[in-house]
Amino acid sequence: MTESRRFADAFSDALDARGVGLSWLRSRLADRGHAVSLASLSYWRSGQREPQREISLEALVVIEELLGLHQGALSSHLRRRGRTGPAPFDDLVGLARQVGRDRGLVGEDEVDRIAFDLVVDVDADRRISQVRVTQVFVAAVDGAAGVTMFVAPGVGTGSTEFEGLTDFATDTVIRAVSGCSVDGVVDIIDGISAARLRFDRPLALGESVVTEIVMCPVTDDSALDSEWGAVAEQRLEQCMVWVRFHPDQLPSRCWVGFQESGLGHEWPVSLAGATGLLHRQTDFGPGLCTARWEW
């Protein structure tokens, strides 16, 4: 067992031993006054992230109690030597695509994704006001009608019940802006859900389309998230993450990183007087481009 997986394994084992799921845990935490998003819990369980912020560490104490553990049973597994880089992601992307195919989701076989641009707006209260995703697709078959876009758990349409989640459990609401509609969101595996995007009309072979969707956090935990990533399920001409901060509220430190072909790297960057954090990769994927910051 590698160190980066120790907390995730302990958390997953504790949930299994208690016989409960993440939705149950999130509801009980909310009853105790701890607003932890389903996405955060899922990231912790899958090993993509660990609790770091003070509010997360406070919630972890309650989680240990709710799962019938002694104090420190989970927190003792947190990494103590600082951040060592992102957890492996390529296998997770491949697994998500395979599970999606097995469940009959429209996917990459009908279209080629050319570009994925993620724009995150942060307001003067350090809250995420909206996340805008623009994608470019080219039809690989005649009559391509849509595509699957992977998103974090807890993302929903705000009106559809799916996989045991209701509007109450939705952390982030997703809405179509142009080029498509959102058919719904389904759970895939820990750490990843899938939004089904339907194009405005079926595409002819070789025809291009640009889709634009907006995601708006509706809970405190999701609105205060300080790490975002763009998932490339296949090779892209461009993958971009652009975080736009309010000029009166700039972060003290920023990092960007990527995971591709079994490799992962993260490095600090300076805003250098700018108000935006930009990370752009070309000829990239499958993999993940990330940007994160601290206040």
Rank of each mutant, 00 (worst) to 15 (best):
D109C: 05
A230L: 02
R175G: 11
F116D: 03
H265I: 07
G191T: 02
V147K: 05
T172K: 04
F11I: 03
S46N: 09
A87C: 08
V136D: 08
H246G: 07
G143D: 04
V186P: 01
F162Q: 04
G100E: 09
G107A: 10
G146N: 02
S37T: 04
L271H: 03
R79Q: 12
L197E: 07
F116W: 03
A17M: 13
A176W: 01
R198G: 09
G191N: 00
P86E: 07
V122R: 05
Q130D: 12
G273P: 01
P51L: 08
A73C: 14
G191V: 03
D187R: 11
W24F: 05
G158F: 14
L288M: 09
R6K: 15
G19I: 04
Q281L: 02
D167R: 14
G184D: 07
I188G: 04
T290S: 12
L165V: 05
S37G: 11
D102Y: 14
R126Q: 13
L29Y: 05
M149E: 10
L203E: 05
F11N: 04
L60N: 07
A35M: 10
R81E: 11
R175W: 07
Q249S: 15
S129H: 05
V122S: 01
D121N: 12
V62Q: 14
H70E: 15
Q135I: 06
R49C: 04
A30H: 14
G146P: 12
T160L: 15
L92Y: 07
G264M: 01
E266I: 08
T166M: 07
F245L: 01
V173N: 00
S178K: 08
G94S: 12
E54W: 10
S42N: 06
V231P: 01
L224A: 15
D13I: 15
R196M: 14
F162K: 00
R235V: 10
V185E: 03
R49F: 11
R101I: 07
P153W: 01
A274M: 12
A59M: 10
D200L: 11
V210S: 09
W44P: 14
V151P: 00
R196V: 15
A73W: 05
A14N: 06
L263D: 12
D220Q: 08
R32D: 14
A195D: 08
E161Y: 11
D200T: 14
L118I: 01
T219H: 12
V131R: 06
L60E: 03
V186I: 11
R198K: 10
S23Q: 10
G107E: 11
C254N: 01
T166P: 14
P51Q: 02
V62F: 11
H279E: 04
D225L: 15
F168H: 11
D102I: 09
A140V: 08
D225T: 12
L41Y: 03
V122L: 05
R292I: 00
G287V: 03
D200Y: 13
Q238A: 06
D102W: 14
H77K: 10
V141R: 02
